[in-house]
């Protein structure tokens, strides 16, 4: 099976020089995408595989990191670009201040990654939503919630 070792990030697909070369390859070559979870972009050492079966071994210096659009390889025939899968969020909608306080306490106590959006608490999902809801106990039954993200069928509880 084909393998590719990556030892540094060449730049962003938006960098003018790289963008021009990627444009050329889109007509006369192959652009591969390496799909990664958001959390995995923090790793400097990582094994991953492209959709067409190219095994990629990443060994970055600590001052570099992966990001959406990072160009990992480019030659006259092909390029490899990181595509970060969109984050999935558990959206919790407290209907009272006491509910919001209790939700905030649990989210902090459980060290969840969160963001706030006009009274909604959004929790970044790194595991099935059911695992997160189980930690909320009775709140999960009372607080309306759903999951948002790419390819997510919106399910409101």
């Amino acid at each position: 099976m084909a393998t590719l070792d990556v030892v540094h990030v060449l730049g962003s697909r938006l960098d003018p020089d790289l963008a021009e070369k990627l444009h050329g390859l889109s007509h006369h070559g192959t652009i591969r995408y390496l799909e990664l979870e958001t959390a995995d972009t923090a790793r400097r050492r990582l094994r991953a595989t492209t959709a067409d079966g190219l095994d990629v071994g990443i060994m970055l210096p600590r001052e570099e990191r992966l990001f959406d659009g990072a160009v990992l390889h480019m030659d006259e025939e092909s390029a490899l670009v990181v595509r970060v899968r969109g984050e999935r969020w558990l959206v919790l909608m407290p209907s009272s201040v006491p509910e919001a306080l209790e939700l905030g306490y649990h989210a902090g106590n459980l060290h969840w990654r969160v963001r706030f959006d006009e009274g909604r608490l959004l929790v970044a999902l790194e595991a099935p939503a059911a695992d997160y809801l189980a930690r909320l106990g009775h709140l999960a039954a009372h607080v309306p919630h759903h999951v948002e993200g790419p390819d997510e069928r919106r399910e409101v509880s």
Binding site: D5, V7, L10, L25, L60, V71, E76
Partner: peptide
């Protein structure tokens, strides 16, 4: 075809 020289070659220093 335009010249493309940005392959991901091994660095001169050992990786971290």
């Amino acid at each position: 075809m335009q010249s493309i020289e940005l392959s991901n070659e091994a660095p001169t220093a050992a990786p971290a």
